[in-house]
């Protein structure tokens, strides 16, 4: 149950985490790798930061923890898998839109090529 509204704009690393989860369920380390890869190494998440972010995102209902798939490693504790919720998808899309708005402005101001 969402207990607070997601802040708008979303924090950049929240946005990236949601983006990572947009098309599949992932566990923490996989999210980290995905973000790193997608941002070309520019956004480097640290474990504490990542797990706290995931906890907060779950608190406000943007992601939800799911049962780990059967093939997930068992030794040393089963990692938590996360799935984006409808609210998370909506928040992520809103943030992308907002950013796209800035991109459009940049284009109008001829900072970018059309």
């Amino acid at each position: 149950m969402p207990t607070t509204k997601p802040p708008a704009p979303l924090e950049p690393h929240w946005f990236q985490i949601l983006l990572a989860l947009a098309d599949r369920d992932l566990h923490g380390l996989a999210i980290m790798d995905d973000v790193l890869e997608r941002t070309g190494g520019r956004m480097r998440l640290w474990p504490g930061m990542l797990y706290r972010a995931l906890g907060r995102l779950a608190d406000i209902g943007l992601v939800t923890e799911i049962e780990p798939p059967d093939d997930a490693p068992i030794a040393g504790g089963r990692p938590r898998f996360f799935r984006i919720t409808t609210a998370g998808r909506r928040a992520c899309a809103a943030e992308a839109e907002r950013l796209a708005g800035f991109v459009a402005v940049a284009r109008r101001k001829k900072l970018l090529r059309a």
Partner: peptide, 19 residues
């Protein structure tokens, strides 16, 4: 958190150090 994800956290830390 520590109990459930010891290996995952450890792996994440080591991955960060390596990175």
């Amino acid at each position: 958190l520590r109990v459930r994800e010891r290996d995952a956290l450890e792996a994440a830390c080591i991955a960060c150090l390596a990175r």
